[in-house]
Design a binder for these strands. Structure first.
Lengths: 339, 339
DNA sequence: GGAAACTGTGAAAGCGCTTTCACAGGCTAT
DNA sequence: ATAGCCTGTGAAAGCGCTTTCACAGTTTCC
């Protein structure tokens, strides 16, 4: 009723709440961020004033005065690849009601850009920083180790993480793919990667794949690369494979998008899948169930990673002293028909 | 060489730079943010000190003291749908070097959550706020109109935007799809949407589709819904359609993921595509080229929207007085073979 | 030659919070 | 009954910047 400044200030400040409730600034702050620290009387008066004035604290001012900002930084290689956006989506919905904001950066597999993104995020004093994978430039490592917030490495798993790690074994995935093809009596294998030199995760899978192949008598394997991560590139590389190496009978792709193209191209060229040739993907993108035959693929725990990281962050926000987590979520090889 | 505090302070402050350069705080600030405002001598000294100390200003403190934060808020319905992540990816790479950070929020087509996301973003005083579509709750509208930063409505186009709008006509897209099927001599059409009640953009396309159908003699049309936006749902609905309405000869989907499922299911049920039935999608997701037949679809200007918005934001950051933009990017109907 | 008009610079006042610190007032323990 | 303790509260000092304002030191103009 008794408003002092009709329209002069657009933004309600904590000061206004304090005045309205007849208490000090400090008390308002206490009521808002340390439940139980103020007496019931003051708590009630402040809460009433907050509601009446529609007050919401400025996250910027909190960040300035406090030690951290209500921000979670996330660095992913790209959003063009659906596997990362699925993790992000899960994280985003999980963080929804927490008051934390997702700050997002992409680097397109460029270590320098990754480092810059990390550096930029750290300046914001985020509550947590999430990076993709366990391979980073030396400087990026240094930044991450010096960060004064929990760091999460996502997607890969390792026993010796920087801090927290939630993911699965890329080596295991590469091996599983090779073993699966060998079990299916495939003898001439190809691993198709996309920019392996830039994507360390795919490189690890390729290496593991080739290691399994090398350990098998009478099985040959080679690694090939595509320039783009899309179906058209998959079609092109499959044509090349079947032309140059007609007796290839098993192809593993480092991504489902490319694999779907490869699957189609093989059939276009008259090969029967899986009779003549097996095709296996990675990622379990949605359309894999709609191809004919449906695509056998590796299913990473997309959403689960995002969800668990978000939950872990929220937990650590309350209990800052808890130990770092190492979670190996594993993966699933989903046999659908293309092998 | 002559460092005063060996390890006492971890973060270099502007104060430190000022001291090192032998100038005042104000001068450092001027050199950094108003090129040309300081004398060449001071500018050189400050720049040298900045480089030597490895100083980078705290975005939080800048935000606190200045009028705006180096943040761009983006609200999209979901990242699970690749069409949005593609726009985001384009935005992200475009903003890469600008020093602006992307803050991202999702609402899963829930107007209340959209409103909350907008409200949360506005508290950060962002440089710009990007929302998806032109349909918002009353309160969300009020928030957007009261925002003291440029607001961008993305994806849809309208002549009377809140502020800026960059997108294409959903009505046009819905009409184009219907007209295309009619040109292909299809007579019994179905429009398949996903949660039309929650997704106003899809609803507009559905309505436009039905309007065209209604204006045509001897053409029937109906709208059906799927619960999930994935290939499995597409397969299920196509089975239902062909069972309940065996003479349907044209199906338009409100998303490619669902359409790819529908395409496959139709063929699984013995229908020839496009001989017996035409299938058309929306979104031009990557795997559309790999289906057999490849999927005819509507291609929205994904990346272009993201890129143009980012560029517009950067431009307006320099020229704050420039007029709001209204850009209708149009769409493309890509005929591939499934119609 | 003196007044008026610029220029570039530094001191200082915030921005809206959090947190420390000192201090009343009501306790418990002797 | 008095000394010593808690407990809850408010005053005040920042957090690291931006920006205003006043002030020298120059230049320009009559």
């Amino acid at each position: 009723m008794e408003k002092e400044t009709p329209e002069s200030r657009k933004q309600v400040r904590m000061q206004d709440v304090a005045a309205a409730a007849g208490v000090s600034l400090a008390s308002v702050s206490r009521v808002l961020r340390t439940p139980g620290a103020a007496s019931p009387d003051i708590t009630a008066r402040v809460q009433e004033a907050v509601k009446r004035l529609g007050y919401a604290p400025s996250p910027i001012a909190s960040s300035m005065a406090g030690a951290q900002s209500p921000i979670v930084g996330v660095v992913v290689p790209t959003l063009a690849n659906a596997i990362f956006s699925q993790s992000l989506q899960a994280m985003s919905s999980e963080l929804e009601t927490s008051g934390l904001q997702l700050m997002m950066g992409t680097h397109d597999y460029d270590p320098l850009r990754e480092e810059q993104a990390i550096q930029a995020f750290l300046r914001w004093n985020p509550v947590a920083l999430i990076v993709t994978g366990i391979h980073h430039s030396r400087d990026a490592m240094r930044l991450l180790l010096g960060a004064n917030c929990p760091v999460y490495e996502m997607w890969d798993y390792t026993d010796r993480p920087l801090d927290n790690v939630i993911g699965f074994s890329m080596e295991g995935a590469g091996r599983a793919v090779a073993q699966h093809l060998i079990e299916k009596r495939r003898r001439n294998l190809v691993f198709v990667g996309h920019q392996l030199a830039r994507d360390p995760r795919a490189q690890v899978r390729a290496d593991a794949f080739m290691a399994v192949v090398a350990a098998q008598d009478e099985v040959t394997g080679r690694v090939m690369e595509v320039g783009e991560r899309n179906a058209a590139a998959g079609m092109a590389i499959m044509q090349q494979i079947l032309t140059e190496f007609p007796d290839v009978d098993g192809v593993a792709f480092s991504g489902d998008a490319v694999a779907l193209g490869g699957l189609t191209a093989a059939q276009d060229m008259g090969r029967h899948v899986p009779g003549d040739i097996s095709v296996i993907g990675f990622g379990d993108l949605d359309p894999t169930v709609a191809s004919r035959p449906p695509l056998t693929t590796i299913r990473p725990p997309h959403e689960e990673m995002g969800r668990l990281i978000a939950q872990s962050i929220l937990r650590r926000a309350k209990t800052p002293d808890s130990a770092p987590q190492k979670i190996n979520l594993g993966f699933e090889l989903i046999e659908r028909g293309s092998t």
